[in-house]
Design a protein around this nucleic acid. Structure first.
Lengths: 126, 126
DNA sequence: CATTCTGTTATATTTATTATGTAACAGAAT
DNA sequence: ATTCTGTTACATAATAAATATAACAGAATG
């Protein structure tokens, strides 16, 4: 399972790539120090424009997941503002909790989902 | 705390309204049978165009949160496909789990967030 | 029965976002 | 010197979001 996006998804391509890389970091497929394919290489891999890749990389950089070194490359380098990351996560969870509540899904079921998804990250490193 | 949106948010207005109504249903501020302000009324309340309101209402209808009766009104009426709602929630949780893992947030902390946000829905009904 | 209100449809325009294309730059690496 | 890097600039096209104005059909109201 490598870099890939769904060209027919309603989710924008740069967000798909952005999310994919975060997931790969979380699951250990990408580790601190790893160098991502250059924007042009990645563009060829995914068959999209390099500006779209650059947009994804720049967003990851702004959020603190990677560092972009001109004339060197884009490197996995975790340096985020934990407070703002946490705020973002909490904002997402608030909406999820609301949706779950609407369909009578109880807290325990959400916990099980979290456990399952989080646990899957820890195990699958290939 | 009533209907309101942030005109300067990066989140689109119709999504803001959509999410807001879901949250109000979850917290009990809106109950099954309640009639939402008409698209034109709501448009005036939020100072946006009625087509934008219509887009939010139509999305809520397609997802099963409300029913829209021409010449009558838009009514809170929960009738969703639980499977697809559940799939959506799980997809969101997968990404949240990944983001949390990246910043060394453990599962228990996510559980506490869920508990806090979910619990807040149950209590605050005003 | 005329008026009002409802979601709905139609047409149109404007603005913002997304995605692409081509070209060039500056500097590190080889 | 050549290649590769992120970066910047300029440009275009397609899509999405938001607005505006107008009209329709039918229920509700007085």
């Amino acid at each position: 399972m490598k870099f890939e996006i769904d060209h027919n998804s309603e989710e924008s391509k740069y967000i798909q790539l952005h999310d994919r890389i975060i997931t790969m970091i979380a699951s250990g497929k990408l580790s601190e120090g790893d160098v991502l394919p250059s924007v042009r290489e990645m563009a060829e891999i995914l068959d999209i424009n390099f500006h779209t890749v650059n947009k994804a990389y720049a967003l990851l950089r702004d959020e603190g997941y990677v560092a972009m070194y001109p004339r060197i490359g884009t490197v996995i380098e975790l340096s985020f503002n934990k407070k703002s990351r946490r705020t973002e996560i909490d904002r997402n969870i608030k909406l999820i909790a609301a949706k779950a509540k609407c369909m009578d899904m109880d807290v325990d079921e959400l916990h099980r989902m979290i456990d399952s998804d989080y646990g899957r990250l820890v195990k699958k490193k290939n």
